[in-house]
């Protein structure tokens, strides 16, 4: 791999990626963002972002550190609400409903829009209880054993843990923990899964397992992933949004969306010079 240029790696990633046949037009919209701005107190972290996210696709947010891509992702399920002083302006609509509307319960939003974090944050409980936690707090009825098996199977973890369901989740490896977190997330039957650099703390083998899993999950779920790894975006995503941090007229840094389109197009024929520079490794 080190012999290959970044362009070659990316083009090979694109060929085995899943972005073929993705058109510019989005017909089945899950999220609509219109001039979305995120603030921390007086500081504006993200300048107006407008984009739409398609159902059952994998959308990747890429860009250098500090460009606000994680901040943007966390506003999709109102996790930013938990940070004192964080505030969202503009429109973030989920199936046409404003996620920040006055009658919207963030708890209900988070139940439908799940999240996987950068560091596998398994609970200090058994493997079984990790998966069962979401359904329990949401009072989901039904056979819990079946649900746990179903979710662990979907997360490609069942065969590895089926005899150790009572064991502590801390006994699992990092990659297994992250798949457990995915199983836990789908146990509440969300429609969307947000992933905030899900492979950042994993080795290449664990990473490729998670990527394979993401492709399988995209059949049933809509996935939005933040990643630092451009090859990963090229390999797994259908659409890519490129963000960067830029100084405004007053000299304050803000994250902003530069370019958004089918992954194939972003990587092979970027329209913006900044995108081209970033993906060819000249910047960032």
């Amino acid at each position: 791999m080190p012999e290959q240029s970044i362009e070659m790696q990316l083009s090979s990633a694109l060929t085995d990626g899943r972005s073929q046949g993705i058109s510019d037009e989005i017909s089945n919209v899950v999220f609509t963002l219109d001039d979305l701005r995120v603030f921390y107190g007086d500081y504006q972290a993200i300048r107006g972002v407008s984009l739409t996210i398609a159902k059952n696709e994998i959308t990747a947010f890429i860009g250098p550190s500090g460009c606000g891509k994680s901040t943007l992702l966390r506003s999709f399920n109102r996790m930013n609400d938990l940070i004192p002083g964080a505030r969202v302006e503009g429109l973030l609509a989920y199936h046409g409903t404003d996620v920040y509307g006055p009658d919207v319960d963030p708890i209900e939003v988070r139940r439908r829009i799940g999240m996987v974090f950068q560091k596998p944050n398994v609970f200090p409980k058994s493997i079984y209880d990790n998966v069962a936690y979401g359904p329990r707090v949401n009072h989901i009825k039904g056979n819990m054993d079946d649900l746990v098996e179903e979710c662990l199977t979907k997360a490609a973890l069942w065969d590895e843990v089926k005899d150790d369901l009572k064991k502590s989740a801390y006994a699992l490896s990092g990659g297994q923990q992250q798949r457990l977190v995915i199983a836990r997330c789908i146990a509440v039957r969300p429609e969307v899964i947000l992933m905030d650099e899900p492979c950042a703390s994993l080795d290449p083998i664990a990473t490729s397992k998670i990527e394979e899993l993401m492709r399988q999950l995209a059949v049933e779920y809509t996935i939005v992933i933040v990643t630092h790894n451009m090859q990963q975006a090229a390999r797994v995503s259908d659409r890519t949004a490129f963000f960067t941090a830029e100084l405004d007229e007053a000299g304050v840094r803000h994250g902003r969306l530069i370019e958004y389109g089918p992954t194939r197009q972003i990587f092979s024929a970027p329209q913006d010079k900044r995108t081209e520079d970033y993906i060819s490794g000249r910047f960032g």
Partner: peptide
């Protein structure tokens, strides 16, 4: 108790009270 345990619980649609009583306090 690490912040990400609370985040993980809240991201699953648990309320603040459920998160405190079932995750943070036991941990």
């Amino acid at each position: 108790v690490p912040r990400n345990i609370r985040d993980g619980s809240l991201a699953l649609g648990a309320t603040e009270w459920q998160t405190a009583s079932r995750q943070t306090l036991p941990a």
